[in-house]
Amino acid sequence: MNSELQYFFELVFSGITKGSIYALIALGYTMVYGIIELINFAHGEIYMIGAFTGLIVAGLLGIFGFPLLGVLAIAVICAIIWCAAYGYTIEKVAYRPLRNAPRLSPLISAIGMSIFLQNYVQLAQTSDFLPFPQLIPDFEFLDSIAYIVSSTDVVIIVLSAVVMTALHCFIKYTNMGKAMRATAQNRKMAMLLGIDADSIISVTFVIGSALAAIGGVLIASRMGSIDAYIGFLAGMKAFTAAVLGGIGSIPGAMFGGLVLGCCENLAAGYISSDYADVFAFLILVLILTFRPSGIFGRAPVQKV
C-alpha cells in the first residue's frame, strides 16, 4: 500500500477508536439532556469510576489466573453494574429533589457531584497514576495489519458499534424505548398517558452510566494508565461531541463523537498536535454557526 494512504488510514482508524469512546460517553450526556434538559457534568466522573472498577476487578481476577478475554468481559460487566448503580444513585440524590427547581440549580448540583466524586476517588483510592493492565490480547489474525490498526482498536470499534446498535434497537423497538422517546418529547403528556416518568429518568441514567463504564474500561486498557482526573478532559470532549451532533439526539452523539475523534487526529497528524484541540473546537464553532442546534439536532419549536 502507498505509504501516504497507509498513514491516512492509520490516522482515521485511531480517530474512529477515539471517536467511539467519545460517542459512548456522549450518549450519556445526550440521553439525559433529551429527557430532563440537564447537562450531567458528573458523567465524566462515571467514566472514571468505570475505569477504576475495571482496574480493581482485573487485578483481583488476575490473581486467580483467568484468561485475558474472560477478565475483560467480567471487568466490563462489573464496571457496568457498579457505574449503573452510581448513575441511579446520583440521579436520586442530586437531581430528583431539584426536579421542579429553576434550571440552574440541578446544573450546580451536577458540578458539585462531579467535584465530590473526583475527590472521593482520590481519597478512597489514590491521587497517583495507576498502571492499567492490557486486557485486550493481540490477535494473531490481525497481525498483518497491526501497523495500521491494533487489536485493541479493532475490539474498541467493534464493541462500541455493537453496543450502539443494541441501544438503537432498544430505543426503537422496545416498550421502554418508546416510553423514553415519549417522555423526551413531552413529559407531561407521557405522564398523562400512564408512563412513570421517574422510572424512565432512572433508566436513562442507568443506561448512560453503563455506556460510560464500557468506554472507561476500554480506553484505560488502551492507554495503560488511569488516575482520578481522567474524567474531566474525556467528559469535556464527549460533551463537545454531543453538542456537535445535536444535544438530545442519539444518532447525533454517535456521529459527533466520530467526527470529533477523526478531526482531532487528522489535525494532529497533518498539521501539529499542538493544534489538535484548536481544530476540534473550530469545527464545533463552524457547525454551530451554520446549524445552531447541531448536525442532527432539531430546532426547538416555540410552543405558543
Binding site: 498513514y7 492509520e10 490516522l11 485511531s14 480517530g15 477508536t17 477515539k18 469512546i21 480506553i219 488502551r222 492507554m223 482526573y229 481522567i230 474531566f232 478532559l233 474525556a234 470532549k237 482531532e264 487526529n265 487528522l266 494532529a268 497528524g269 498536535s273 489538535a276 484541540d277
Partner: peptide, 12 residues
C-alpha cells in the same frame, strides 16, 4: 496535551 485519552496521532 497532558491527560488526553490518546496520543496515537502523534506517535503515528
Amino acid at each position: 496535551t497532558p491527560g488526553a485519552i490518546d496520543y496515537a496521532p502523534v506517535i503515528q
